[in-house]
Write a protein that binds this DNA or RNA. Structure first.
Lengths: 146, 146
DNA sequence: TATTGTTATACTCTATAACTATA
DNA sequence: TATAGTTATAGAGTATAACAATA
């Protein structure tokens, strides 16, 4: 059986509120205070998907090419990414993450997971509560990836 | 019975990933394109909690007083908030939301809820799925408010 | 003196417009 | 001509330091 419009609406409101509040709380935790969310998002993309051009990164992050150029400049100066020219098409710049960049992303993810795990532990949630949260997480990912 | 460390860690990772992705997806929806998340957060606070001083707003948003002064300047120019001096303590500035500001917040929330409800509807989730999402939302709010 | 808020200044992220180099 | 990227410039949001007004 499919859900009623009313149930959909109530669920959307609850979930929207909870999602924004939790995301906001977790976003404070990062490996380096000087690292912005925008920079972190680029590094996370490079870590997952490997080498990318400026244009591809800009499209992925929904920003303009000049914005991405500027962000990559900053990350390059800090030693978190490397630029190389694509010899097959010399207009293109290939951006790849460095070991230092990979480390920053891993540390930030670890800190956020640690923080969230601690918060969950403090509330003394049952195994059933945790199962509910994992089931909801799977549903939320389906929503985003639909 | 309380949950194992391993279950906590796995749940934290799942939930962190799902929360960031969904928040990012929903954040795109807003009533006015020119309205930033920072501005929206201030308006939402004023709408919920009424009149606030600059310092109180700055603490609530975890930014400095000069940053909040600048943000309130912008919101005042756009007509979304009003400044008045606290006559009981003339150092203080009382900030309150205008009708236009209230309307913008309501519209943005409505758009995000509509978007999320549509996304949920498209996936044809069962009543049980929606119940899981609502239960998880309640747990997530407990985590943030702990 | 301590508190509240503003001004001055600077850095990052964002944008649009105009440009260079390459295809 | 079209595409990939950069430079120039501007606005918003953030910070710290120094200041004015008030308690």
């Amino acid at each position: 059986m499919s859900a009623s419009d009313e149930a959909l609406r109530l669920t959307a409101t609850d979930l929207r509120l909870a999602t924004f509040r939790l995301a906001r709380r977790l976003r404070c935790a990062r490996a380096v205070d000087a690292m912005s969310d925008a920079q972190l998002a680029v590094l996370a993309t490079l870590r997952m998907h490997g080498v990318r051009t400026i244009t591809a990164l800009a499209e992925g992050e929904r920003v303009t090419a000049p914005s991405m150029t500027s962000m990559i400049n900053g990350l390059e100066e800090q030693g978190y990414v490397r630029r190389t020219t694509d010899e097959a098409d010399r207009r293109r710049v290939l951006v790849e993450i460095t070991d230092a960049g990979t480390e920053i992303v891993a540390q930030t993810i670890q800190r956020r997971d640690d923080l969230l795990a601690e918060m969950l532990a403090e509330l003394d949630f049952s195994d059933e509560d945790l199962a509910t949260l994992r089931a909801a997480s799977a549903l939320m990912r389906k929503v985003v990836e639909r």
